[in-house]
Write a protein that binds this DNA or RNA. Structure first.
Lengths: 85, 85
DNA sequence: CTGTGACTTTCAGTCCGTC
DNA sequence: CGACGGACTGAAAGTCACA
C-alpha cells in the first residue's frame, strides 16, 4: 500500500537504499546501547539534530561521520551497512 | 627514488582510519574487477579524478558516493569497510 | 592511465528554535 | 525525548588542465 508519497514536504527521504539501511541500523544500534540521540551526539561530537536526520534517512553522512558514530557506539563501521540483520 | 618529500603539497591524507581502509579496499576491488579508474568512473557516473582521490585517501566520500561505487563494482558496500580483509 | 592543484557549486553539519 | 524548520558556514561534490 505504500501510497506514492508525493507530497512535497520540505525535507524528504534520500533516494538511496544504502542511506536508508544506515538509518535503520543507526537507530537500532543506538537503542541497543541505551543512548538518547542527544547522548550519542555528545559522544561523537556531532549535532543532536544531525543524528536525528541520519536516523530519519534524510542526511547523507560522510565516511568520517560514520566513523565517529561507529566509535561512539563501539560497533565496527561495516555493521551499519548490513542488510539482512 | 623517493626524493626527500619535504615540499608541503597542499593535499594531504585525511586523518581517518576508516577513510584509509575504504581507499585501500576500493583500489583492491577495482583491480580485482580489472577496471581502470576511468572505466569505473564511467560506470558509476563519477569523475575519474574523484575516484583517484578516493583511492589515495584524500577524499571523504558520502554514503551515496560509496553506494554508487559499490554498485558499479557489484560488491556489497560493507566490503569497503572490512579491515582484516 | 593516473596524480595533482585549483576551482565553483552543492550540501554536510551546526545552532537557534518550536511542537 | 524526538521530529522538524530556518539560516548559516565550512567541507564534499564535481570538473578541468596539465604533469
Amino acid at each position: 500500500m505504500v501510497h506514492t508519497l508525493s507530497t512535497r514536504t520540505s525535507m524528504e527521504l534520500l533516494d538511496s537504499a544504502l542511506v536508508q539501511i544506515f538509518a535503520g541500523n543507526l537507530k537500532r544500534l543506538r537503542k541497543k546501547a541505551r543512548l538518547s540521540q542527544e547522548e550519542l551526539a555528545l559522544r561523537c561530537g556531532l549535532d543532536r539534530t544531525y543524528i536525528s536526520g541520519c536516523e530519519r534517512g534524510i542526511r547523507n553522512p560522510s565516511i568520517v561521520s560514520v566513523e565517529k558514530i561507529a566509535e561512539a557506539l563501539n560497533v565496527p563501521a561495516k555493521e551499519f551497512f548490513e542488510n539482512g540483520r
